[in-house]
Amino acid sequence: MRHDNLLSAGQLSREDIEAVLDRAAEVAADPGRVAERQAGRLLALCFFEPSTRTKMSFDTAIKRLGGDTVDMGTVESSSVKKGESLADTVRVIEGYADGIVLRHPSEGAAKLASEFVDVPVVNAGDGAGQHPSQTLLDLYTMRENAGLDDLTVGIMGDLKYGRTVHSLAEALTNFDARMHFVSPESLKLPRGVQFDLHEAGARLREHTDLEAVLPDLDVLYVTRIQRERFPDENEYQQVAGEYRIDADTLDRARDDFTVMHPLPRVDEIAPDVDPTEQAAYFEQAHNGVPVRMALLDELLGGDDGGAGR
């Protein structure tokens, strides 16, 4: 992958993606072989929004490569609270670490950060923008379960604010994939993402109801519809109820159907789906570590034991 940063899924070619996924498969098969790859390297974890799993996943990944992390901590306890700009924060942190993993509530934050520092920046979620490292582990899981060729993918839930959805959809345009987007009218894909998908020649359709497309799907990627997107509790309950799946849903799908979810879920996937063969979301979460190991290894480069970049 010839990139200095990972800011959005749109920057990734099919070759870039396959290189990371292949590397991740090697890492998963024999983690011991890369246990010292990033020895001496420090990765800064800058999470301006609460996150447990993404942060832990990056933390685990760099440590399994022999590196370590420095953690900005919570925003409440940092100088950000005192009004420091993101540009200043990352310029200071650049001096402590060999790479920066950034989660931030504003769209475009990672791009901005990358313009102020020379170390690699990984976008670990920018507002309702992008979450490209999640996409790599999503694709890894999809490839393991369904393959990435001649694939029909349903993406359901909050497509408007769902950054994992935006990144995944853009990345899937590199593959032979048909996309069905299923959401309430008010949470359809934003114009900017639609624009990119059309530019990339994506084959996509939008639906407000899952049932009609369910039998065609190889994979269903479910996302959470958040309460705060709706002004009214009743409206939320009604809408959220329509985009929930359970074991009965699986009966109406293909036998080799795969259910994915970026987690955390609330109740959009009923617990009776968990023990089924179709449920891939915990495996998906576990894949985050080898995939992020492969990604960080690519971005941080070389096996020179951390002696400069």
């Binding site: 700009s85 540009a87 504003s106 769209e107 900017g192």
Partner: peptide
Amino acid sequence: CITNADEPVDSAFAVVDDGVRCEYCG
């Protein structure tokens, strides 16, 4: 969009077919 936060950057828009597009948030 991060360009509307108090950050030391100028806004930047790409000119596309029928409008303009923010280079930061899309």
